[in-house]
């Protein structure tokens, strides 16, 4: 279990093993980056843009982004919308229920710092990075689908650059 983590360690003792380990790493990271299934977690108006991105004009599927209704099958939470204090523990629970490696995209102003409209509200969480570790921040209110696509491309870059040993750290 989790044997893959030790591949780079073993590979050092074999001549040419480093090459094999690096190639394996890049193949696995590429495969992972090109099938990021995201959890439907849409709580406010950013969801409209998220839905628009998923529809035919922007075609999220071509990045390998397919929505899943359960965290067990998801690699990524796109937190689209205001996270209230009441919603925050639920977001954390969903994040906990996902399998590693897992990623979070904070979409829109509300998830980054409480948002432009609700910042003074006592009920709104001032940024979801208080609750879950965030990989990519996408500013906007709400961000256009192009921004979301760019954020996802950045996430793919990040995933492709990661090492096998990082899988467990996420």
């Amino acid at each position: 279990m989790g044997l893959i983590k030790k591949v780079p360690v073993y590979a050092e003792h074999v001549p040419g093993g480093g090459f094999v380990a690096t190639q394996l790493e890049s193949v696995l990271s590429h495969a992972q980056a090109c099938s990021m299934w995201y959890l439907l977690f849409a709580t406010a108006c950013c969801a409209i843009e998220l839905m628009c991105t998923g529809a035919s004009r922007y075609d999220f599927d071509r990045l390998g982004m397919i929505f899943r209704p359960t965290p067990r099958q998801a690699d990524l939470i796109i937190a689209a919308g205001t996270i209230t204090k009441k919603m925050a523990p639920r977001l954390r629970r969903l994040y906990d229920q996902m399998a590693e490696p897992r990623y979070v995209i904070a979409m829109g102003g509300c998830t980054i710092r409480g948002g432009p409209f609700y910042y003074d509200s006592y009920a709104v969480e001032k940024g979801i990075d208080h609750i879950v570790p965030v990989d990519i921040y996408i500013p906007g209110c709400p961000p256009r689908p192009e921004s979301l696509l760019e954020g996802c491309l950045h996430l793919q870059k990040k995933v492709k650059a990661q090492k096998l040993a990082d899988w467990h750290e996420k």
Partner: peptide, 22 residues
């Protein structure tokens, strides 16, 4: 899948999925 996947169970993860409710 067994050799590839990270294995990290903990109580919060193992709880039944009920749309984020306990």
């Amino acid at each position: 899948a067994r050799i590839l996947r990270p294995h990290n169970p903990y109580p919060e993860k193992n709880v039944n999925y009920e749309c984020a409710e306990l």
